[in-house]
Design a protein around this nucleic acid. Sequence first.
DNA 1: GTGGTCTAGACCACC
DNA 2: GTGGTCTAGACCACG
Lengths: 134, 134, 134, 134
Amino acid sequence: MRFELNFKSSKPVYLQVVDQVKAAVASGAARPGDTLPSIRPLAEELRVNRNTIAKAYTELEHQCVITTRTGRGCFISDADSPLHKEARLQLVTEEMDQAVIQAHHLQIDRDEFLQLALTRFDAFAQRRLTASDE
Amino acid sequence: MRFELNFKSSKPVYLQVVDQVKAAVASGAARPGDTLPSIRPLAEELRVNRNTIAKAYTELEHQCVITTRTGRGCFISDADSPLHKEARLQLVTEEMDQAVIQAHHLQIDRDEFLQLALTRFDAFAQRRLTASDE
Amino acid sequence: MRFELNFKSSKPVYLQVVDQVKAAVASGAARPGDTLPSIRPLAEELRVNRNTIAKAYTELEHQCVITTRTGRGCFISDADSPLHKEARLQLVTEEMDQAVIQAHHLQIDRDEFLQLALTRFDAFAQRRLTASDE
Amino acid sequence: MRFELNFKSSKPVYLQVVDQVKAAVASGAARPGDTLPSIRPLAEELRVNRNTIAKAYTELEHQCVITTRTGRGCFISDADSPLHKEARLQLVTEEMDQAVIQAHHLQIDRDEFLQLALTRFDAFAQRRLTASDE
DNA sequence: GTGGTCTAGACCACC
DNA sequence: GTGGTCTAGACCACG
């Protein structure tokens, strides 16, 4: 699993790690049961402090993306997201609203926006399919 | 000009303001010479501290997006030219991809996702319409 | 709000703080909208590091017990627990099972156990009522 | 003797074992001279590392609850006498209060709580029965 | 070896 | 003033 950090971003490093793990899971690149890199080596590789990675992993556990077993390591959770549909839709809605705001400010019209939603969704699904063929 | 703030985002409020002004300029929705809302009323409307808006405007001036003339107000600079449609789409695409990742991670299917794109876009358009009637 | 820490307990200090805030909310001693002690003074008062309190507050926010607004402070959430009933019952079940295990090992029989559940629940409700009369 | 472990508790696994043995002794369910399960099979049954069980037994020996005779096994010491009923109820009450706090915090009402106490108690009794049939 | 907790102290962003 | 992030390094518990 490869991580790319941008230390100049306003997004905290630990959240960048969180998002990249979630993206890996979402895309199928990381599968349930897979072990994540252990904290210390990963911290060294990314040139950040151990606590920063630990914080990212804690956050991921809160979000039920991974499970950690002390002394054993951290693993991708196998359970489907335990959140109810309503709660899950709420989370996606928050992201979607960011895109909507951006679209309106940039004068992207309704048709273009829907077209974009469609193509990006499918492009991602395609990448996911490819990953699972490996 | 309408602003949409998300207080729980990791992106600081003042940067959300900066980005939304820049997006308006990039799209041509805000034109050189247009005046921005003055600090105090805007801060009140958005329920944030005046310093937060002041900081956003300072940042925008540093980036040469606006010019402030003390005692007169803040204006869009002449320098910038609206981005081509392609460049604007690229910016929205980045936001859309975040929503796509979230959707896949939360097992939202294609139809639900497109439905969401549609409803949130229209909901926002509706809110703008209502606001402009006031 | 008073905190009592036991540094010899195997329960981490930050979790003791979490539990005591939750108990205060549950009992009605802390009400929605109330502000929690700020991190630095509380850390000083309890003779622990600022990070320890910060960790406790982060955990409480994850559990939707409090909301924190950077630069303003931490507040008891006003929303009802957003968890669905099923999820909430699950959490109580985990605690109940601890009591059940203890009861079986200690040879407490069914009637005694149910009697205990009843009296402790009512005793707590009573304390809560008293608190809200203040 | 049956053990019930909760891997997500903040209480370490080895202490859960310690407490459950002590509870059995306190109630008289385990009597002086009784042999405890040997380490390897128990570790296997509970899916934990042998060291974890060994640590629990070491701790129990330090507390003079058991005596280990190398090559023969571990036995309940003669020293302890079962606690009076009142003392045992006190121990269960502590656990019950945790469940009560959780229930109030999660807005579980009186009837639901008592129902839960009943079903979990019986579910546990049932599991014990089934296990002893094996 | 693994992850978890805690400290001490720095710097930043927001109000 | 507030909370948020990050570092450096300590000690513990678990496997």
